[in-house]
Design a protein around this nucleic acid. Sequence first.
DNA 1: CTGAAAGCGCTTACAG
DNA 2: CTGAAAGCGCTTACAG
Lengths: 337, 337
Amino acid sequence: MITLKELSEKCGVSIATISNVINGKENVSEKTKKRVFDAVRETGYQPNFMASGLRSTKTKRIAVIAEEISAFSSPAIVEGIMSACEYAGYKPFLQNLRMYARNIFDNGEKFKEVVQDGIRLALAIKVDGIVFVAAHSRKVDVFPENLEVPGVVCYAHSASEKYPSVLFNDEKAASELVRHILSKGYKNIGMIMGERNSVHTERRIAGVRTALKEAGIELGDDRILFGLWRRETGFELAPEMIAKGVDAIFCGNDNIAAGVCDYLRDQRKVPGKDIGVCGFDGQEFASYMYPKLTTTKLPLLQIGGKAGELIIAQIKGESFDKKEYSVDCTFVEGKTI
Amino acid sequence: MITLKELSEKCGVSIATISNVINGKENVSEKTKKRVFDAVRETGYQPNFMASGLRSTKTKRIAVIAEEISAFSSPAIVEGIMSACEYAGYKPFLQNLRMYARNIFDNGEKFKEVVQDGIRLALAIKVDGIVFVAAHSRKVDVFPENLEVPGVVCYAHSASEKYPSVLFNDEKAASELVRHILSKGYKNIGMIMGERNSVHTERRIAGVRTALKEAGIELGDDRILFGLWRRETGFELAPEMIAKGVDAIFCGNDNIAAGVCDYLRDQRKVPGKDIGVCGFDGQEFASYMYPKLTTTKLPLLQIGGKAGELIIAQIKGESFDKKEYSVDCTFVEGKTI
DNA sequence: CTGAAAGCGCTTACAG
DNA sequence: CTGAAAGCGCTTACAG
């Protein structure tokens, strides 16, 4: 790689002036400018990033740290962030913490260590800001209080006041789904959810109850079953729920809904005819199910986009006005309810 | 951030020696080592990456440049690469070229420019090697002949002899599928493929023909229909194919197969009963279809893993023995054929 | 408008 | 075994 010094010899302009030209400083004659640009073009000169990074501060680079890029929600969020960054002239770099593969979600110590390493590395390549993308919602404490650049948390609640979070509105989406269910004439609703002590579980149940209450219906605790956020949970808990005499099952996510449909099929029953089923998340596969699953689509692109805007605004010195930003989901009408 | 100099003052050891200790050089007394490590721990000293990068060459960092992280194949390939890198003690950084969002797949000039930018940036943050992850197979010319670090191409054919490619074996997988189809008693096979001038199309047809020939069956050109790699293509071309009197449809990918199933359902026919259908790719949604789709699963993790091994071997000075590495797909038995 | 010089925080021979 | 010194390729006051 050719250096400033060589370029200087080539075009007979001092390295200081060349540096000024390249960095768009004022007070350089058109003539020298031209000489420099010609030489740059001719030689294909590229500034050494390490050297300039050692001296200057802002790099127009943003780090995106994803807990797990294989999580269904992550690619779209990342895409949203990157799109916003690029629009603003920032270059995003992605790190994948690979929490699933390393199996460290539930390990507090290791988790902290891995996250810290990621942040350290991001700081090492000199970024102007860091966006953290969680793989599932919960309260996360990822950024140290004295982080030297702005930080934003996506898809989880930031533990610290210093770093805002961007999430979606579980409660509202759940209410909307229930209103649709009721409008179809279903009256006797049960829920099959993922883990009990999850923010999502809690909020979605609250949303369901709100909408039911509007219609004068009370949802008893016995009408809510808990398992994992998986297809198998739907399959395994469906018989128990059906035995309660429900006519529609609100599932905690699309995977659980698919499991419920699996069970219904095994029983020679058709989802949406014999019993109503809805999911949550709006994953790609939901539209490939037969019948097509009724669900609600997470605003992943928008979450990423908002996070990108937030980080850039902060880099530019603006402050954020809310601690948590919440984006709405979109109802997806299928044939299962 | 605390610097070497401050650390030096703190523990009374010269910066040169501290540097040696931190970088694990021999010939340092245990006593000084301890003093240095204690001071490092106490102060939380972190070497300035820019400064060290400016001086040394190897960084144990690898760039992964993905054409499009939203492509269904990319996350798993990237995961495979990262896993291999981490195993070997290398830290991967991911760039997303966002070809879809920017709509530059078919734009030769812009494509080249964007790829070049990506490589430049990777070189700028000083990586020891670059892995390129294509979003779909074709011949790609991404690395310049004089790239200063090793390069590997995933999921596409590298145009240059200098950079090996890692792909999967379309032909073999297609033959395997056809042997399964024949074993189920189907005799009259038709194909609905994606774009005609695609490497995948060509190879899969070749694989189908090979297996059919083994059974003494000739596949006429009129039994192959072309469209796009999309669900709509399956839906739109299914009637034409069925009119030819086939009893099984080999689809170019899972999306097309889903479209064919959509059509059959509309006609009150059941895939796997009234007519056989198989896909290709083994996407997640295939297992959510009803009936479950028979297909073949792309070895994405393995492709990434192999690419990771290849890049690391080259960094360590070893050379590769093949220009193209091909990994086998895995047959996925469903209920549609 | 232009350039000589200091300095960013490290690593790397090299002298002792 | 330890440290003084040069130098990596830039940027940034500052003098002219």
